[in-house]
Amino acid sequence: MKNKKIEKLEAIRGFAAFYVVLFHLLPQKILLFGINIGFLFRFGSEAVIMFFILSVFVIKYTWESSSDKSFKKYFLRRFLRIYIPLICIFLLAYILKCYAEGSLADPEWKTLLGNLFMLQDVISLKPNVISPVYMGNGVLWSLSYEWWFYMIFLFLSKKIAPSKIHIWVSILTILAAISYVIYPFIINRIFMYFGIWWIGVRFAEIYLKGEVYTFTSIKNYSYVLIVIIALLSINLYLNFGYTKTYEYPLVAYPFIELRHFVFAILAMFGGIIWNRFNWFGFHELFGVFKYLAPFSYGIYISHHYLVIEATYLDFISNTILKNTLYILLMFLFSYIIEVIIYGQIRKKLNSYLLIKI
């Protein structure tokens, strides 16, 4: 039964990755029998929020089941998981840029370093960003959040007693939200978003204890999210003028943060409701996407270059055929970097370092 529940997480992860591709690929207006169904593919940022929640569920699950909770094992495991495919993407981006320019291109060292140190965000949509995403790959913004979430989780798990850790997270995330209203920047933004990530911890704890998902089981943490939503509503009111600054205000400060937290709490409640109905229709809707899960991270970080901004198949005039080939090549590339390359490196480190990574 537990394996089937974890399989659902894999299916959602695969679906979320592919959905982000469709979000960037498909036009906003797709008419079907006179009805615009394009709006169904306008929630790419919400798919990223699902990644956050699913990610920490797995982190918490593996953390609790691991006998070795050392910094070395945890750091190496997370470092390799993030950076091995990511470095392949950086190389791909540079090669494609050189190909497009017909000579050795500018590697954009400053931006590359900013991304390697996980300081990147979408500079055109948020204030006080330290580094833009590398070579225009917008989805890389989420990796900086994910990486620092890993580090915050490790620190809290090792330094704070389990009985007090939820209180600490509640205080940290609410204080971050308050400071974000005063002055938004990378540190308080990450700590505030850690509140979304922590939803996965709460769900993982319930799962590990074999308890039932109910509204009561997540009631206390719901109050924390509601407080943050209220603070972000105030921030939207105070800084509404920024919506005229950005070209796409619905995915920019100060609206996008509120949108993310509202979706997160709806996803949390929605998961509990769907669980009560024994996940009716889940397999039919999402089951097939479990096959994308093993290389979903690769899909997520490569599709900008291999599908959205790709030009290497421009000799094909049929748009549907061309995009289909782009997607298939993206699947192949993602499988190679995430399953084969990362998988082999992980196995070798298992042998040389004698730790399970």
Rank of each mutant, 00 (worst) to 15 (best):
S222V: 14
W198C: 07
C88Q: 08
E211L: 11
H24I: 05
W168V: 13
A310I: 09
L104T: 08
I59A: 07
S334M: 06
Y305P: 03
T311D: 12
S157E: 12
I59F: 08
E7W: 09
A176Q: 07
I6C: 05
A16F: 00
L225A: 02
R13C: 01
L232R: 03
F282V: 00
W274L: 06
Y223N: 12
W147P: 03
F33V: 08
F269W: 15
A177R: 04
S131L: 05
I186F: 15
I6G: 03
E108L: 11
E211F: 10
L54T: 00
V339K: 04
I226Y: 09
N239I: 08
L91H: 08
A161M: 12
K73F: 05
I49L: 11
N115I: 07
G114T: 03
F269D: 13
F155C: 14
I152Y: 06
E46H: 14
A264Q: 02
M192G: 04
E309L: 14
L329S: 02
V20D: 01
F23N: 04
F269V: 15
T245N: 14
E205C: 06
K164D: 13
K69W: 07
F79R: 09
F79A: 10
W279E: 00
K69A: 09
V139A: 10
I355E: 11
G287K: 00
Y300W: 09
K29N: 12
F57P: 00
E309G: 12
L236C: 12
S45Y: 15
S302M: 07
W197Q: 11
L172Y: 06
K8G: 05
I206D: 01
L140K: 02
V307R: 03
P85R: 06
L119G: 04
W148I: 06
L76T: 05
E146Y: 02
K290S: 04
L349P: 08
M330Y: 08
L113E: 11
Y180S: 09
I178K: 03
E10M: 10
Q120M: 08
F261R: 01
W279I: 01
E257N: 13
K290I: 00
P294H: 05
Y193G: 14
S233K: 12
L112R: 03
T311K: 15
A177I: 08
L258I: 08
K73W: 03
L329E: 02
I160P: 01
N3F: 12
A267H: 07
E10I: 03
Y335D: 06
S170D: 06
N350P: 13
F280T: 14
H283K: 15
V307Y: 02
L96S: 11
W198N: 02
F331R: 00
I87P: 07
A177D: 06
E309K: 14
I301Y: 02
Y145P: 04
I174P: 03
R189H: 14
R78Y: 04
L113P: 09
L225N: 00
Y134A: 00
N239K: 10
L231T: 00
L258F: 10
W279S: 01
